[in-house]
Design a protein around this nucleic acid. Structure first.
Lengths: 152, 152
DNA sequence: CTGACTGCAAAATCTTTGCAAAGAC
DNA sequence: GTCTTTGCAAAGATTTTGCAGTCAG
């Protein structure tokens, strides 16, 4: 696992170098945070977490946005808005997966289904699209919220 | 088709009545626009279109937002953000469907696939969620953009 | 009439940008 | 040294809210 992160970092450095960009503490911290906290964050959450974690390092929300945009452009992270209002994104370095979100508590779980992936390809072909990517989000009520129903 | 719209309007009026809300020109115009222009709009696009279409009627962006929220709450319309940055929503009164979006020109096509729908139910069950809804978005390059590749 | 609705403009959010200082190479 | 990055604060963009007048029931 540790070596996987090394590979990620290498790829990140290569991308930077290839584009005449610089490797900075802040950028490393952001990539590292995203990698090590596989989850779903808003830019602000990342900002707060890094401020907390690296008290010595200066970090600003603008840098988060800029780095996130950079990562997304280079395909190393993806953003998905889970809620039209809430503006919650996912930035992840993981391999492909889809999401199911609890409409009560916001819990997000991930899954992967081969059948669906194949079907998606068929559909794209039928509609004459070259498929590049996809996002799927299921919305439901999670186990916990089913039990304590009546609340929220 | 015309009678379908009548039914929609009836349902809308019923919902309003049931909640002690009023049936106004503005609300009708918005519902009507959404119904008759089955497509994908930003609130601002709806606002502009209505200003253009009903020059006599006053309409403000706040009303659009308020009505859209109302429609969404009552399940008569849904919003999906197609782009984390772009904040583009869909508000539709149609029956369920999913989307494929062209990454070059933004063209949106719709589709429906029974196999995927079934799989989604299975997945939700396996993860102990009660499935309520889902959104799926495929991203690719449409036929037109494939032909004029090199551009953007 | 009464209470909900509307437009407007101001406020609240969220994201991007300009700029001078700091840092990577 | 040179050119990119950074943080900050200001600017933009998007969405929500407060309010007094207007309108539906």
């Amino acid at each position: 696992m540790a070596e996987e992160f090394e590979k990620i970092l290498e790829k990140f450095k290569d991308t930077l170098k290839a584009n005449n960009l610089k490797y900075t503490k802040q950028r490393e911290a952001i990539v590292s945070f995203i990698y090590n906290n596989k989850g779903h964050f808003t830019p602000e959450e990342i900002n707060d977490a890094l401020k907390e974690k690296h008290k010595d390092m200066k970090i600003g929300i603008a840098t988060i946005y800029r780095t996130l945009a950079l990562l997304e452009e280079s395909g190393m992270a993806t953003s998905i808005s889970f809620d039209a209002q809430g503006k919650k994104y996912e930035f992840g370095l993981k391999k492909h997966h889809d999401h199911i979100v609890c409409s009560k508590c916001g819990l997000i779980k991930e899954f992967y289904d081969e059948t669906i992936e194949q079907k998606q390809n068929e559909i794209a072909k039928k509609l004459n699209f070259i498929l590049e990517d996809h996002h799927m989000k299921l919305i439901g009520i999670c186990e916990t919220c089913q039990k304590k129903r009546g609340k929220n």
